[in-house]
């Protein structure tokens, strides 16, 4: 076959270029560790997602000192959880699956990007060095409101990150001279034990108690306040644990029975008299 000299040179140069491209890409994957989504995870039926230990409750879990796992569901037209919060300087593995059609889980402006196919679980391990806030979008057309499907990824400074949950159960009303009780539950979903102080402010009083909550445990603290010290009327109260806050109002009355026929001294357990039950997720809301 007759090939012109220039053509031969061009052919050789082209092959060198191609091999060069392949070499740089290979270097990126092998030496720099830029890996792709693979087939490590077994399949999952979309109907079984709700019963799955990971996806039943979409969330972030701590699995190592600076290692976290995020279980995320994409469905028309939302991500669950809608906001994912992780600490800076951590390594997060995302497990993402779909409840219905093909979506994507794409952290805007980054290479954290995967297709989400029903039946499959996408896994991506990402290192977050600096605090930042990112948008998450679905970039695969998934139906007529595809353009509304978005979420958030907050990488917060390490010292501001925790996985604490605060829940307070308190009386709404007590008869004067009875004790008002505040049951405070502090849950710690991090691996390290949480040492903190639970504080209750009511009227002029401040009650404090130091607690240590072990990993994956919930510690309960009960504050008792003598309503006689508060006096008759409405009293605002606040329970604080680190950055978390719960508040409500306690009514101290002369004679409760006259007002609504309730038993006096009701502890409020399982009561139907509107216990002030609150529960705040681990998300900070700054």
């Amino acid at each position: 076959m007759k090939i012109h000299t220039y053509e031969k040179l061009w052919l050789v140069a082209s092959l060198v270029l191609i091999v060069g491209f392949i070499a740089t890409i290979t270097y990126g994957s092998v030496a720099l560790g830029i890996t792709m989504v693979g087939d490590e995870e077994p399949t999952i039926e979309p109907d079984e997602i709700s019963d799955d230990e990971r996806f039943g409750e979409p969330r972030v879990e701590q699995v190592g000192e600076n290692e976290y796992e995020a279980y995320v569901i994409a469905q028309t037209f939302i991500f669950q959880p809608e906001t994912i919060e992780v600490p800076a300087d951590s390594e997060v593995t995302f497990y993402v699956t779909s409840r219905d059609v093909i979506h994507s889980f794409s952290v805007v402006g980054t290479n954290t990007n995967t297709m989400v196919i029903p039946g499959e679980i996408s896994t991506l391990t990402v290192e977050f060095d600096e605090p930042d806030e990112y948008g998450i979008v679905c970039n695969e057309y998934c139906g007529d409101f595809h353009h509304t499907m978005e979420g958030q990824l907050h990488v917060v400074p390490e010292d501001e990150f925790d996985m604490t949950e605060l829940a307070v159960e308190a009386d709404d009303e007590v008869e004067i001279d009875d004790d008002a009780t505040f049951e405070v539950a502090v849950e710690n979903r991090q691996l390290e034990a949480l040492e903190t102080t639970v504080a209750l402010e009511i009227g002029d009083e401040t009650l404090e108690e130091d607690v240590t909550v072990d990993s994956q445990m919930t510690e309960e603290t009960t504050f008792t306040v003598d309503s006689a010290d508060l006096g008759e009327g409405d009293h605002d109260w606040t329970v604080t644990v680190d950055d978390y806050e719960e508040s409500g109002t306690l009514t101290v009355a002369e004679d409760l029975e006259d007002e609504d026929g309730n038993e006096d001294g009701d502890e409020g357990d399982g009561g139907d008299d509107g216990d002030n039950e609150t529960d705040e997720e681990g998300d900070t809301d700054e």
Binding site: S29, M36, T43, T114, I121
Partner: peptide, 13 residues
């Protein structure tokens, strides 16, 4: 399909 779950990295390579 570089971003597809369920396909091993080797095939993508």
């Amino acid at each position: 399909q570089y971003l597809d779950p369920g396909i091993a990295e080797g095939f993508k390579y």
